[in-house]
Every structure is written in C-alpha cells, then in structure tokens.
C-alpha cells in the first residue's frame, strides 16, 4: 500500500463529508422532529432540540386510533416477509430449472421473463386491479401478496448464479445415488445458492416494503394498509387534524429505523452476484 499525499486525503475526505451531510441531514431532522409536538414542529428551529418528549410522543403514535399504527407495521411485515420468502423460493426453483435443464422453449421463457424486468410495475398495477376486481380479490391481503411473490429480476439473478455456482458433477453424483430431482433441489441446490437467495430476498423485501402504488390501488380498508399507505393517509388529513403532523413525523421515524438498520448491517449481501451477469456478457 503506497501512502497517498496528505493533500489528496484532505480533498477526498472533504468531498465525502459534504456528501454525508447531504444524505444524513433529513435523517437528523427526522430524529429531532420526532421529539416535538405539532406546535414545536412549526415554532422551533428544526435543526435543534426544543422541549423534547420522545417517549411520550412515540407512545401517542402507537396508541392513536386504537393502535392502528402497529397494525400497519404488522401488515407491512406480513406483505414483505411472506411475499419475499415466496418470491425467493419461486425464483430459485425457476432460475435453477432454466440454468441446469435443457428443454424446448427454455430461451423463450427466459427472454419473456427478462422482458418482465423492464416493464414498469406501476403500468401493471392498474390492469391488475381491474383483473382482481373481476374475480373479487381486491381489498384483501391476497391482492397485495400474490403480485409480490413474482420477481422476474430474482429469476434472472438465480439463473446466472446457478449457472456459475452449481457444479454439474454434484448433480450427476446425486442422481447416480438415486436422489429424486426435487430432493436434489431442496437439499443441495438451495444450499449452494444461499448467497443469491439472500440477495433476492433482500431485494424483494425492500421492494415490497417500499411499494406504494400497488396497495394504494388494491386496498380501501385501512386495516389492510401497509405502513407506507397508512402514514400517507395521516399526512393527507393533517389539514383537518393538526395532531397528525406530529404523528406522521413520529410514525415515519419508527417505520424507517428497522429497515435502515437492516440495510446497513446487510450491505455486503447487496453486492453478491448483483452484476455478475452483466460482467459475463
């Protein structure tokens, strides 16, 4: 490691510090704002403390309207957790089949799935609502869960990963030992593909957690809302009920803390295999 001139180190560090201020200032504001009530929000300096009561105000968030906020959080966890888990399993099975089996139409299937990556999700949500409406599926957990289980990008990643990481010799050996195809998938392939599965799960989890358009279109019952939709509904009523200003701010802080921790702790997995496919082309 050659040492770099001090001048360069200072310039690089200053640039990085300026960027850090830009990315962190809204978070800093949010943390302080959550300790204030509506009067404090409007009346005090946003970059400084003023009569902080974080616990009391966060309790108000949790108890408002019979604790609807906690229900929204639970819904978000359900949508994102179950949806991402199902999407990961389905993607890994499909990606493995597309990578390791030869069958007619394989490339056609893969190309159609790949085109699915480029279709804007919001362009699908509207016709999907009309379809679900026909079969009476709208305004239910299934209306958000079912579309969340499909991840064309996950299939793409899993195929690339399986092609590179699952050795044919291992599969052949297992077949000679008399193992069934599904048993091979369950016991061997899933294990080898774990790094890719973590990446797909994270992608899908965050994608569903952040999704807003689909639940907005599908759901009308507040009790089914994910937290994004719930907070937006509070935000929309602030004109009529000023207390909702402070509840929106507190609720926003509570909802982003777990995901921010998740993102930072699991940063490593956002890399694995993400661009391996494009590297090979």
């Amino acid at each position: 490691m050659t040492s770099t001139p001090l001048r360069w180190r200072i310039i690089v560090s200053s640039l990085l510090a300026v960027a850090a201020v830009y990315f962190l200032i809204p978070v800093y504001w949010l943390v302080l704002a959550a300790t204030k009530d509506t009067t404090g929000l409007f009346g005090s300096n946003g970059f400084w403390l003023a009569d902080p009561h974080p616990i009391r105000y966060l309790r108000m968030v949790l108890s408002y309207d019979n604790g609807i906020y906690l229900r929204w959080i639970a819904n978000s966890l359900l949508y994102a957790g179950v949806g991402a888990l199902a999407a990961t399993l389905l993607s890994s099975a499909a990606g493995y089949a597309l990578a390791k089996f030869r069958f007619p139409g394989r490339e056609t299937v893969f190309n159609i799935v790949l085109a699915g990556v480029l279709i804007p999700a919001t362009a699908l949500a509207l016709p999907l609502y009309l379809l679900f409406n026909k079969v009476g599926l709208t305004n239910s957990y299934a209306a958000v869960l079912i579309p969340s289980m499909v991840s064309p990008f996950g299939v793409y990643l899993c195929r690339i990963y399986a092609t590179a990481a699952v050795p044919d010799g291992l599969l052949e050996a297992a077949r000679i030992d008399g193992a069934g195809e599904l048993a091979i998938f369950r016991r061997i392939v899933l294990r080898v593909m774990t790094p890719a599965l973590v990446t797909v799960f994270l992608f899908q989890f965050v994608g569903i957690w952040n999704n807003f358009f689909l639940p907005l279109v599908m759901l009308s019952d507040q009790k089914l809302y994910p937290v994004t939709l719930g907070l937006t509904s509070w935000h929309g009523y602030t004109d009529r009920a000023p207390i909702l200003y402070q509840l929106t701010v507190g609720g926003a802080l509570l909802s982003v803390i777990p995901l921010m921790i998740l993102m930072v702790v699991l940063q490593r997995h956002w890399r694995t295999g993400l661009t391996q496919g494009s590297l090979k082309d």
């Binding site: 990315f23 962190l24 952040n210 807003f212 909802s255 982003v256 921010m260």
Partner: peptide
C-alpha cells in the same frame, strides 16, 4: 442509508 426510506416517506 436513504435507500431504506420508502419513496412516500
């Protein structure tokens, strides 16, 4: 970090 904040939030 900001990527952990949903678009609406």
């Amino acid at each position: 970090l900001p990527h952990g904040v949903p678009g609406v939030i």
